[in-house]
C-alpha cells in the first residue's frame, strides 16, 4: 500500500467532511474526534458525488455520515449503510502523518 499525501490537517474541518481526488477517485474524508475516516464520495442512493457534504455523528455507537440528499446513514469505519446493510461504500485507509492527511492506495 502506498500512502498518498492529500492535504494538511488544517484543511480539515472538525466534525465535518471534505472531498479529495485520489488516483482519479472521489474520496470523502471526515475528521471526527482527531481521527480521519475516508469513504467514497459517491452516494449510491442519490447517484451523486455528495457524501463529503453530509452531517457526521454517531448512532448506536457507530460513527456515521448522513447523506445530504436522502439522509441514509453510512458507517464511516466499515462503509455499511445502516438503513440497508447490503449497500456498502468503498472504504479507504487513511491516517495523519506530520500534519499531513494521507490516503492508502494499492497500486
Amino acid at each position: 500500500m502506498n500512502w498518498l499525501n492529500v492535504c494538511s490537517v488544517s484543511d480539515l474541518q472538525n466534525d465535518s467532511g471534505i472531498c479529495a481526488l485520489v488516483n482519479g477517485e472521489q474520496v470523502a474524508i471526515f475528521y471526527v474526534k482527531n481521527t480521519v475516516y475516508a469513504v467514497s464520495n459517491f452516494d449510491p442512493f442519490g447517484n451523486a458525488n455528495v457524501l463529503s457534504r453530509g452531517v457526521v455523528g454517531d448512532l448506536k455507537g457507530q460513527i456515521v455520515v448522513a447523506s445530504p440528499l436522502y439522509k441514509q446513514h453510512f458507517n464511516l469505519a466499515t462503509g455499511v449503510c445502516l438503513e440497508d446493510e447490503n449497500v456498502i461504500l468503498p472504504v479507504y485507509a487513511s491516517r495523519i502523518e506530520n500534519d499531513t492527511v494521507q490516503i492508502g492506495v494499492t497500486l
Binding site: S16, R53, V55, P68, L69
Partner: peptide, 17 residues
Amino acid sequence: GLQDTNDTFLANMQKDG
C-alpha cells in the same frame, strides 16, 4: 459542522450535487 447541507453551503443542493 452542525448545519444541514443546505446551510453549510448557503444554497439548496439539487439531485446532482
